[in-house]
Design a protein around this nucleic acid. Sequence first.
RNA 1: GGGCGCUUAGCUCAGCGGUAGAGCACUACCUUGACAUGGUAGGGGUCAGAGGUUCAAUCCCUCUAGCGCCCACCA
Length: 976
Amino acid sequence: TRRRAIAACSARASLGHAMDKSFDAAAVESRVAALWEREGAFRAGRPERAAAEPFCVVIPPPNVTGNLHMGHALNNTLQDILCRYHRMNGKDVLWQPGTDHAGIATQMVVERQLAERQEADRRTLGRDAFLARVWEWKTESGGAIVEQLKRLGASCDWSRERFTLDAGLSRAVAKVFVQLHREGLIYKAKRLVNWDPKFQTAISDLEVVQIECKGSFKWSRADEAPLDEAALAKTLSRNPNGHLYYFDYPVVDAAGEETGECVTVATTRPETMLGDSAVAVHPDDPRFQRLIGQKVRLPLVGRLIAIVADAYSDPEKGTGAVKITPAHDFNDFEVGRRHENEGARQINILDAEARVLLKGNLAFFEGIEASDQELARLIAAVDGVDRFEARKRIVAMMAANGLLQKIEPHAHTVPHGDRSNAVIEPWLTDQWYVDAKTLAQPALAVVREGRTLFVPKNWEKTYFDWLENIQPWCVSRQLWWGHQIPAWYAPWGEVYVEETEEAAFAAALADGVERGVLSADEAERLTSDPERLGETFTRDPDVLDTWFSSALWPFSTLGWPDDTPELKRFYPTNVLVTGFDIIFFWVARMMMMGLHFRDEVPFRDVYIHALVRDEKGAKMSKSKGNVIDPLALIDRFGADALRFTLAAMAAQGRDIKLSESRVEGYRNFVTKLWNASRFAEMNGCVRVVGFDPLTVREPLNRWILGEASRAIAETSAAIESYRFNDAANAAYRFVWNLFCDWCLELAKPVLQSGEDGPSKAETQATIAYVLDSVYGLLHPFMPFVTEELWAIKGEAGPTRTGALALGPWPKADFPVDEAAEEELGWVVELISEIRSVRSEMGVPPAALLPLTLVQASDSMMRSAGRWAETIKRLARIAEVRFADSAPAGSLQLVVRSAVAALSVAGVLDVAAEQARLAKEIAKERGEVAKVDAKLANADFVARAPEEVVAENHERREAALARISKMESALQRLNEI
RNA sequence: GGGCGCUUAGCUCAGCGGUAGAGCACUACCUUGACAUGGUAGGGGUCAGAGGUUCAAUCCCUCUAGCGCCCACCA
């Protein structure tokens, strides 16, 4: 297609019109993408860059089955700007792409699919069949996100794409797990975990979100009105959380007889009372001093439990006496441990599906003194029922026994699974943990030492706070989609953690023989019988937290554990670009793993960008329905426009509230660039072999080359310090407000009506040269349109090889020419002033007025001579004259302390002109007064820097000069 | 409860010690040979409020008010 396009272009070129009249983003995007692919432009390790400095970024891997959302668009645009910039600067760039298997998220999608299609669920299917289905789904939808990233223009080395469940990465995961286990940094333990009853898996602290709950039901025994169970049930079914229930626990004496006194406890989770094994009061709380050491009878269950003294109990909260349920509450777990010998045991009341379990759990009934009848009622009410249903029934039974004191609405936060949105149950289980505290120490140190820098810096604090208080990381998940934990259990209770099954079996057999639980013969027989081996030693069914493999990403994608050339060349990577929401999930863990396994930071810089929010500032999410689809914006405005918008809005430290009008505005910028290029083409601005900007003579050309250099330097500096918005704006301002608005306009007389000759040729060559610089300058932000223009312009003039994506980055080496700046500054100001006053005085655009420069200096006369044509055209002037005084009845302007008089055809509106001058004079006087006030201040003159004082003097003089010129103009006006 | 951040033009946002800026929107004019997805000119801000530091504060400090986010918290 491109060859055809070129052929078409060439054909049109001979007619004088190579470029299409308008820019067709969709067509250009696919054409340019194909060009990059054909050239292998993004491949790392191109032979000609073998000696070049490496530059590496690893992509935050999107979910393999995901779709591009605005966060991805921002994240990858910023990475791409960095990669393209460095690639254009000649570096050997590796932007390492890949995708994440996203354990819970992906498994959830497939399970939901099965349910929607009314197919057998995962348990019915079985592990292998289910996993086959997930892989099927991965194959089906897995390419989408990559294609979407390509549409955005992401210049990843796609030939090196990785997936977290690839063989190579899986090998890395296994090796890391085994090594950490050998080092004692991974271990298995039975403790409370956050259990997600919906997905029926443990999750880590980070995957728990706190959600505010507040109920509305209110009842008190003191009111003497019976509890309205129907109303309670109705409230609870709508919002099961958000109430505080006050229960009376009867105190018993040493003989087990009720004393008639009660201890009242308050709880938000009544059903957990079945597992209570103590009541705690504060050791210093005078209200409960005499009760410490005594016992209460746990209602309904009948068990006697101790009143213990523990500082955990807060006299301010609830009743000051708190029920202790060690198996179902993180705080109670600790209290229970401290009072184990007082009977505060862990009594599990829930099964994995969060149903209350009674039968078979004898712990409930130890020391029972309740009547059989009462027990039977309890069992009938709550045995095997859902926790929230059990809650209602227990409350009802307590009320029936007269032990419910009151129910109050109570606002509090309740932990929910971030994916499932189910209320989390703390549950006592065996899980695998990473000793994060140990791994965190080097990760803290390197940031403190500045070996890795956060940008903006304030995120360091967040990072430090979390790592300093880090808890063991629960890495096992009761899921199937993921890296299965490389641990095998032997019948004799030992666990063997090895990288492969073969190694595990060998280790187990050898150990079994050594332990004497296996005879050498038996071991021999097992070795030769794979089937029996597999039955003898069973593998841990759990998989690892998705973030476990993500933590290895910066080195696993480079080939680790093999010692590959890429690993040597590109690790540590230069910069990680990511959102603050995954500093804990990902950044911190990559630091821990990178340092532990490579003994070097995974990245030098961490650039933390904002979140893209909707117009109200809310996080975009599918459930809220407030997502803006980046692909839809690309379809409407083009990828370049979207990218430029995101870059221009990516100021550090603030979230982006994306507005569509902004994208539209930058789409217009793309159009502007396109049309400027067409203008150049129509006016013979063709690249010239061996053009050397340093030899240019024309002031206009010297001026624009100087401005271009300035803009390039500014943009480069901004990109290198991650100020993407400054970079985008500097480029934007130069291209539109200087190059298009002034340079091209000022060049028109020369190009369109000027005689052929060296000065016209120089201007044409300069414009072509500056345009090439502009394409380069904008390329990191707008790669498609610039690559296309680069190619089109390459068709004319000397042959140019290679894609713009490979450089060069434009040079910023043209020295600023002050004389040229002065001259052009005067021209621009003169034209602007004339336009302004014409508009203000209502002079019709069609009227061409004579302009008189009053008492012009020699240099001004020379400038005016050079620019007469331009001034006539742009300021609608009939003729430029020189005189010693302003003609009668003219509008007088003060431009750079010289008077320019505009002879108004017909009658000058004297009153309007008087008013205008008076207003200008007043404005200048205000300025003078302000400056005078400053200069009159001795402290200011004494303490302000010299240049500031001097500047104020200059400002004062200039204003006074303008005032005197305008006053004499006013004077003349009055004489008419 | 601990922490971070925000409050600047009608809207969305830059700026952050020394004459207030952009995009969009708005007003008037311009179908001029690159571009109406455009051009020219213009209106619109006591930079949340109150103190303080400074020769000088939108910018630094303190407090107040409002908004947002993160972490902790199931009596």
